[in-house]
Simulated scan of single mutants.
Amino acid sequence: MEEKITFCQSGGCTAKLGAGILNHVLEKLPKGEKDANLLVGYDSRDDAAIYQVSDDTAIVQTLDFFPPVVEDPYTFGKIAATNALSDIYAMGGEVKTALNIVCFPEKMDLNILGEIMRGGSEKVIEAGGTLAGGHSIQDATVKYGLSVMGTVHPKKIWSNNSGRPGDRLILTKKLGVGIICTANRVNEASEEAMHAAITSMTTLNKKASEICRKYEIHACTDVTGFGFLGHLHEMMDGRLRCKIYADQVPVFPEALSYADEFLLTAAGQRNRNHVEQYVDFTDISFVMEEVLFDPQTSGGLLVAVKPEQAQALVHELQEAGLPAAVVGEISETDDPQTLQNKEITITK
């Protein structure tokens, strides 16, 4: 008999708290005395923390977990692990160790938990890391993820907000998995669409990160719960602007169809409420807007690269089988006040 898990109201990265709520809480936390070795902390809104331990080594530390986004436990484990591992790659690092994070109902079949953890373990191994333990608690619903430790050279860190005017923006995975999974939850998604979404969500960003390290990357983030526009807003950091060409953004075509049928996520609407004030849409359809706000589970890397290297980087990413594309470019403004909050322009 095939073991399945029950969907919660929101699974994967659609279950995460909105950026606005997080900002409200984080800005009030006591900071304590600054540690000179803490190169990246939560105050920068980056993908992971980085702590320098020697002249040539810094530790990258992150964690991520969430409720099921698919019914199959093994597949859910792979997706959750791939998503958690991604933050190491978004900082330019290499995965070293991982710890399981498990919330599981005591009365549920333990075979389900075993399959979840098997999927996660396989992804850690694929990443070149070691699963070194974990922690579990009894809970009313299933949640799973990883705490991950990686390493990076202190002078080769990719921050998410260090892009430069002229940089080209490259996205390495298609958008729309949140909408597709929402459609699947109400039995409206095709098998082909779900297969494509699962393939994307279980593809490590390892290869993309390794390829990008050959080029002059100025900034990088992975596109997850805040959606493409939410993470792009963090990259602009209130000091830059950018133009995105919607027809160049890689998107699952089924996601556009399902958005047209209003199969949307509450998290996508939270993303819209938080970021819409910073975005100027120029002749863009409602469904494409929704895809750009859509929370991504285990999404791709969004990198800012030196303009002269953009096409070569995209070509190499595509040769590796990734649906990468140049989706826009960064520019500057002489006076931040002239941005009038519209730091992102979306055009055809």
Rank of each mutant, 00 (worst) to 15 (best):
Q138Y: 13
W158A: 06
E126N: 08
H218G: 08
V95Q: 04
D87G: 11
G328Y: 03
D109L: 01
A127T: 04
I170N: 10
A255L: 06
A196F: 01
F226N: 11
P73H: 02
V177C: 12
G32W: 09
T347L: 10
R164K: 14
Y245L: 13
I137W: 08
V177N: 13
A267R: 15
I116M: 10
I112N: 00
M201W: 09
D55S: 13
K173N: 09
M236F: 00
A84T: 06
A127G: 11
Y89H: 07
D55K: 14
T130I: 15
G150F: 02
V223I: 14
K16T: 00
E316A: 07
R239H: 14
E126G: 02
C13A: 14
K342N: 01
K155V: 00
I217W: 01
K155Q: 15
F66T: 04
A325C: 02
E234Q: 12
I180G: 07
A48C: 11
S159R: 15
A266W: 03
G227L: 08
T224C: 07
W158M: 09
V287P: 00
L110N: 14
Y245K: 12
N111H: 15
I157Q: 02
G133Q: 08
L322Y: 10
T151N: 06
S162G: 02
G77L: 02
Q337V: 14
V251A: 05
K155F: 08
D247A: 06
L301P: 00
I211R: 09
A132V: 14
G11M: 10
K143N: 13
N37E: 11
I179N: 07
L339V: 12
I88E: 04
M91W: 07
D139M: 11
A140W: 05
E216W: 05
I101V: 08
V314M: 08
T182W: 00
S121P: 00
A90F: 05
A219H: 04
Y89E: 02
N160A: 10
Q248N: 13
S298R: 05
S44I: 07
E289F: 00
N187S: 12
H218Y: 09
T221I: 10
T6Y: 09
A58D: 01
N100Q: 11
C103I: 03
N341S: 11
G119Q: 10
L171S: 11
I112S: 04
L63R: 12
T62M: 07
D56H: 04
E329H: 10
K96F: 08
S86G: 11
K34C: 01
K155W: 00
T172I: 09
Q269Y: 12
I116G: 03
G93L: 10
H153S: 08
P67T: 06
P250D: 06
D72P: 01
F65L: 08
M108Q: 15
R241K: 15
G92C: 06
Y144T: 01
G227T: 07
C8V: 14
S121I: 00
L22K: 14
S147F: 05
E290W: 09
G230V: 03
P165V: 05
D35I: 12
R213P: 01
E3I: 10
Y258Q: 08
A183G: 15
G12C: 10
V186L: 06
E210V: 08
Q311C: 07
I79F: 02
T265D: 07
I217E: 02
